[in-house]
Simulated assay, not measured.
Amino acid sequence: MDACNAYYYGTRDPFGARGDFTTAPEVSQMFGEMVGAALADCWMRAGAPADAIYAELGPGRGTLAADALRVLRSAGFAGQVHLVETSPVLRDAQKEAVTGAIWHESIDDIPLQPLLLVGNEFLDALPIQQWVGAAERRVLVAAGGLAFDRDGDVTETSPAREQAVGAIASRLAAKGGVALFIDYGHARSAPGDTLQAVSSHGYSPVLADPGEQDLTSHVDFEAVARAATGAGTVASALVSQGEWLNALGIGARAAALAAANSDRADELAAQVQRLTGRDQMGELFKVMAIRSPAWPELAGLR
């Protein structure tokens, strides 16, 4: 999974109608604006530390960062921007969207300063292990293709995901800040095979065309919370994306945009429905924040 995704993201821009999938920041500017508003509010209630920095993990085309930073800058945030991205193709797109950013290969390279960090659909792409009973499920070369070496009731773990969350949490505990994670997943650890592949906006067999399709798994948010609290931070409640965006006032933002652009009213309403509707992205995607004990809770997650 790690090798396939490294090649996949390193060799293409997979986003949008011409790619394999569409993420929330590409649906509407309002998504990034809500993220920026929540971070700005939290930063100000924490005393507006001047040395705070904005960081994003796997920032796609830079769309979310650009929209969030527009709101943050308007609130007086003047900190540096740090993007963790290994794909040269996506770095080129991010350079067009976010001026003055500093790029890193790894979370460990982010400076030790107060953090306003975002990971939107980042944790789902980190590699997992699957277990059938006590035996690890592995991938074999068989009959000219790839196959799993065993079947049965599957349990998933992700040491890479827990390590990433722990590294972020250690920085937050030491220097202050908040990290916001938005992803599809489940609230409680439970057995089940959630590994999936997406290509051309549809699901594909997970072992087909290695490196040519996006591989993800559902995020175990209970495990995320354990990793965060174990490193000295506070994990918020888990809420749906729709509930969170509505609590932040995405409807009011859409109304304001529609008042200034009357010809876009239907388009904006459709965007809100896509982001918040229970039958679209609103219920599938979940939101959790982890924070330094010295920082306030992020709005909408109390």
Rank of each mutant, 00 (worst) to 15 (best):
A289I: 10
V272S: 10
A247R: 05
I250C: 06
I290C: 04
A256G: 09
R253K: 12
D263N: 13
S292Q: 00
L248K: 12
M281Y: 02
W244H: 07
P293T: 02
G251S: 07
S292Y: 01
G249C: 01
A252I: 07
L245K: 09
T276N: 13
A259W: 11
K286G: 03
R253V: 11
R253Y: 07
V272N: 01
R264D: 14
K286P: 05
S262L: 14
V287A: 13
A294R: 02
G251M: 09
V287G: 03
A254S: 14
E267Y: 03
A269P: 15
L284N: 10
F285E: 02
A258Y: 11
G282L: 13
A258Q: 06
A258P: 10
A265W: 13
L284G: 02
K286C: 09
A258F: 04
A259Y: 04
D279L: 15
A258R: 04
A254L: 12
P293Q: 04
L284E: 06
A256F: 06
M288A: 08
D279G: 06
A269G: 11
A259N: 07
D263S: 15
R253D: 13
V287W: 08
D279S: 02
G277K: 08
W295Y: 04
A256M: 13
L268Q: 09
A254R: 02
Q280A: 09
A270R: 10
G249A: 00
I250M: 02
G242L: 11
E283P: 02
S292L: 01
A289L: 05
G249D: 10
V272T: 13
E267F: 02
D266Y: 03
R274T: 01
N261K: 07
A255K: 09
G251Q: 07
